[in-house]
Design a protein around this nucleic acid. Structure first.
Lengths: 146, 146
DNA sequence: GTGTTTATTTATAATCATTACAATTTTAAA
DNA sequence: TTTAAAATTGTAATGATTATAAATAAACAC
């Protein structure tokens, strides 16, 4: 059931970090809001509902730690706040995002779109690709129907 | 000779903005440092060398204006500052970037890598693509030779 | 279990990039 | 030139994030 949570716990443990109640609560919030792109403040407020004693700095530190462990990706849509996006277990690259310039919605897509492109980059520029970030800006299907 | 500068001046004018000495000085700095990815603070310091009376707020406002006019792209490499990247005249999308995770260098590439990918996104997700941002993280050719 | 060392958390203060503000200056056009 | 709108300046305010120091909790040897 809770395989994702277990996976993340194991990641923490094997990297030598402790599993504190605060870290567990933060991870649970991320798992319960997988489709959203929460800011640190968002996460803080949600964690606080269940664990009111948590501090904002702890949430920041935990998110930074999870980023380092590649459990989440820290992303930025240009609105001045960092957002955190849970990676799929074993995924080796970022989700791609479709940002609607009319309604602001963010859709996440999982497709492997860049295999060919990465091959070109590696070959032509002798650049060893480890990861990528791809965001499209445009008009979502809902806004197109207006 | 100064076609790019002229082009930008025209863009300002046709959009109803005035060509002030501060704006011109800012644009010149961007043109003289095309390969770099300058932060607002970087631009401010460079402009100040030639035009010491300029204010930081003016640089911020000018860069914002140029972003709006699509003369520059505001980009973010996750280090807490926005950087500004001059677009090629008539270009309709962002440069792509190769960020080296070892030495931190940023290489800019101009290739049209995403035409096929955009077609897939438009078709499969009914998302009308207007622009995109693509960054690769990996190891540059210099660091590979170590 | 007790004590000890180290990691973690907390609350708050500090930092840093960016934006807002009010007063002043400049621009462009009548 | 006069004038009205636009732009700039210096500074203050904002807001996200990070650093700090004291307190707490965890792991581990004995």
């Amino acid at each position: 059931m809770d395989t994702k949570l277990d996976y993340i716990k194991k990641q923490l443990h094997t990297s030598g970090y402790k599993l504190t109640p605060q870290r567990e609560a933060t991870v649970k919030v991320l798992l319960e809001n997988e489709q959203d792109h929460l800011s640190a403040e968002d996460v803080y407020l949600l964690v606080k509902e269940k664990s009111p004693e948590i501090g904002l700095a702890t949430v920041y530190r935990t998110l930074e730690l999870l980023t380092e462990l590649k459990v989440v990706d820290k992303i930025n849509f240009g609105d001045g706040v960092s957002r955190y996006d849970l990676r799929k277990e074993g995924d080796n690259h970022f989700h791609h995002h479709l940002v609607c310039i009319q309604c602001g919605s963010v859709q996440e897509i999982e497709e492997d779109l860049l295999d060919d492109v990465e091959a070109i980059v590696e070959d032509k520029f002798k650049f060893k690709v480890k990861d990528h970030r791809l965001t499209f800006h445009g008009v979502c299907n809902i806004c197109q129907d207006k």
